[in-house]
Design a protein around this nucleic acid. Structure first.
Lengths: 341, 341
DNA sequence: TGCTCAAGTGTAATCGTTTACATAAACACT
DNA sequence: AGTGTTTATGTAAACGATTACACTTGAGCA
């Protein structure tokens, strides 16, 4: 075990060739003769050579890594997306850097620094709720082409993005409830200002309109995607004079909180009211009752995001690049929805 | 918006000083005169200079980043730990690289490469279930001092580590059930071969022995930390002739699956049986019934791990380093436990 | 005055790669 | 033989920072 790791010079010496040849053998073997290749490989084995990435990164002007930005690291919703991103990146020899927008902001760092200081070649942002000035700084940077939004996006801005079919999902949800016989359907929304919340709410209202269903304004309950907001929404529902027979929640967490709170007040799902969510998180299946939901393919979403970004990183002049991708969702029917009483 | 980012040379020129002075101003301002400092800062502003990390990393022989290895990226259990790690790292100007042991292994890469090729200065491993040959390669590397296990660890090996008080937690759990009046207590374990599962099981058996409680061998049910295993364990419990009145599960997911399955068979928790978990994940509070559990402070665990590792990275010769840390746990009493009928 | 010392700055080597350019050998063709 | 082309390799200049060392001042002091 040598303490000093060996360099390309050591390999060159051991193989009796120049460093250029070693480098070529390792990164572009086709242009090197068989005999030389053999010698170099042997020398690599002998010396235990590992390429020094810092040196390569400096010389190639590439960090060989991508930054993923989450609104909040502690939110389990993102873990599968990360898995998808990571899979694609590591298959291309790239590493995945992670940070939370909150934290970066709090520490006085600027997001764009990651690109400007050559720490990352591109970034995937999973947070549509960035401050306007931050978004502007991202837009005006020369490397703005290397920024991609996944899952969420920024309304009115033209960043490349990958998202789930929020409209189609909402369509499927409302129609599922409709076809069960529900005619009075409520909606619990995500947080005000969140693009997903708005997209789903708008789609909900459009869909209910298309089916010519009654929709009282108090049947659209403002929430924030969390369990706690689901509990609050349940209290609101309970207090209604004219209660909808079905509730479509903008997230599974909302739906689970909703059901939990109802249960504390001795309402039974789906007997007293049908409830469904959006996302199909792991717990949706195990909850009692198990939750009808719209499944987002978070793994695919992550993989798509990574592959779109890699395409941009590797094609220098942005020719024929995909600008937006939409990942399909599917309706998963479980126990929490049933025909109205 | 210049396309080419400016270098330290540009700043030096703009400030009318040498690159050495610019570098000193930025990294060691105390030794530079006030006037020069002012000039350099102005020049930095003027040029929009951002340090190039690749160049610095090469010159300083530091990656200024740490690798965190998870067994499985899609497991939400780890997200708070990551948050804790990330907080500490970014406060020190370090970045967080993430990979999953599965994936690294699958791609034919070796874990130790991250250290050997200067991609990371150290690593935090959250997976005690590495293959023996992988562990050996980590042990025999000259940089082995820069590897730290968090949460889980490898039995019989002497890597630095941070973990929760698994013994104390188990003690608190069993005594909570005992003090409610339970005398027949079952345990659903984590997966065979997992260090946490073993630690908790051993502590459970010891504790039950200390209280001189009866313990039939079929009251220790082998699980694997998952919701699904919890369901299976419930079926086993139902089939017992002599059913324990309380069940201590080695994870919250197990406990929730256990309760869900019982409910499908019309058993009521805590009326028919008390159930508790370990971890205190977010859902524990919202589940119906809400779950009594042992809370692990995952944020603190992450922060502690990061700070121990940073200490090792920054002290070159390993003087007076902490080798192991234990993070306290606490008993959170909720609805899923009650006196036996 | 002459000497020492400290403070502040500049010069240039260095980190370990990649790659443009030069060179040399081998081959094909007239 | 002379020429052009291809293939394989070497030489050396980058990439953009940090830092050991040398140098220039001016102050302090006998």
């Amino acid at each position: 075990m040598t303490l000093k790791t060996s360099t390309i010079q050591d390999v060159a010496r051991a193989a009796g060739v120049s460093t250029a040849t070693v480098s070529r053998t390792l990164s572009n073997p086709d242009i090197v003769s068989e005999l030389t290749k053999f010698r170099v490989y042997e020398a690599v084995k002998l010396t235990g050579y590992r390429i020094n990435r810092a040196a390569r990164n400096l010389r190639t002007q590439r960090a060989h890594s991508v930054l993923v930005l989450l609104p909040d690291l502690a939110n389990p919703f993102f873990s599968s997306i990360l898995e998808g991103i990571s899979r694609h990146l590591s298959s291309k020899g790239y590493s995945m850097l992670i940070a939370s927008t909150k934290q970066v902001h709090g520490s006085g760092e600027r997001l764009i620094d990651y690109l400007d200081d050559a720490r990352a070649d591109g970034m995937i942002i999973l947070d549509g709720g960035l401050d306007a000035d931050v978004v502007e700084s991202l837009e005006n940077n020369p490397k703005t082409k290397l920024i991609l939004f996944a899952c969420e996006w920024v309304e009115g801005k033209d960043f490349p993005s990958v998202r789930s079919e929020n409209g189609n999902g909402t369509h499927a949800a409302v129609n599922h409830l409709y076809s069960l016989g529900h005619r009075k359907i409520a909606h619990v929304t995500g947080p005000k200002g969140n693009v997903l919340a708005h997209a789903r709410k708008d789609a909900f209202i459009a869909e209910v309109g298309a089916l010519k269903l009654e929709l009282k304004s108090e049947w659209v309950i403002i929430g924030d995607f969390s369990l706690a907001a689901g509990c609050e929404a349940a209290k609101v529902w309970i207090a209604l004079d004219d209660r909808p027979t079905a509730v479509f929640c903008a997230s599974d967490q909302l739906a689970l909180g909703f059901i939990a709170e109802l249960s504390r007040h001795h309402f039974k799902v789906p007997y007293d009211v049908s409830v469904m969510g959006f996302d199909d998180i792991d717990f949706a299946e195990q909850f009692i009752p198990s939750l009808t939901s719209i499944r987002q393919d978070r793994l695919l979403l992550g993989e798509t995001a990574a592959s779109m970004l890699m395409e941009r990183i590797e094609s220098p002049d942005g020719t024929s690049q995909h600008h937006a991708a939409v990942v399909p969702v599917s309706l998963i029917i479980r126990e929490s929805t049933a025909p109205p009483r």
